[in-house]
Amino acid sequence: MSLTYHVYDTDEMTPAEIYGQVLTKMGEERKEIVALTADLAKSTKIGKFGDKFPERFFNVGIAEQNLFGIGSGLALAGFTPFISTFAVFASLRAAEQVRTDICYQNVNCKIIATHSGTSFGQAGTTHHCTEDLAIMRSFANMTVIAPADGYETANAVVECIDYPGPVYIRIGRGFERTVYDNPEYGYEIGKAITMRDGGDITIIACGPCVLHAVEAAQTLKDNQGIEARVINMHTIKPLDKEAVLKAVNDTRRIVTAENHNILGGLGSAVAEVITEGGKSCRLKRLGLPDTFSSVGHPDDLLSYYKTDADSIVEAVSEMLGQEVEEDEDWEDEV
């Protein structure tokens, strides 16, 4: 289905607000949509849907296991539940309900997990979530999306309703700057977007790191004449393997950036594809180095964990100084 986006002013609306509005708009046409949350209607903005369709909105209180169980039941009854809570509760507190009641039964639940990564900066590790990509990626049947900004969140929400089975959409707290200035850039679940082409190195990013990757590439070009390809890997699963293999072929050097533990998330997914592809390629994974997160302003934390534009520039420069083993048969085999 298509929606009109220009009514939304992304300068003034957070990704969560945009998705709340988009979901509400979709709810008018799609009567099968129901929305659920666990005392986070305001924080996740899913309450917007509830304001418009109170009879199709369920706030189950602070009980996330029940939240996802009820969501499963509503899906089994023929509805398409959109379930929103903080990423840490969706992927950890209710992990088994998400796995067993939703993924195992392959029901049509769409999970919008907010405050992911370290986006809830000052709240600290109990409210950060740097494990969800790893967890959700390992659940069979689950599609995992980490949109770059509000427009992309809206696109993902619109696309996921007719995308079969469970979908996990991971967004931040909502104060992230936007990458896109309109939604018409050909968003498709499972299809990576090349933000800028380049043959020297590839930066693959997701979520808030996409903007930083784009900025880093510009800096690299301006200051050093380096042509860095930037890929917005908004879908972590199914991963766009072709885009990764093409980057390996064209640039032989890849830096990944994500607001997540470097174990199990985007970097790991990319590493798996590179390794199974069998071609030599340098890889540096930027993200939290298998540590619990610190407290601080989200922007400071992105920089502290080396996932902001400056850190990406640094990682790229370092990698360009490193050799990549040549593969004689490369051209024949691609």
């Binding site: 296991q65 029940n66 499963s72 039941g73 509503l74 509805f79 309900q97």
Partner: peptide
């Protein structure tokens, strides 16, 4: 029971 609650609400 949570699943049953969802079915009953449905």
């Amino acid at each position: 029971l949570s699943i049953a609650v969802g079915l009953a609400l449905g």
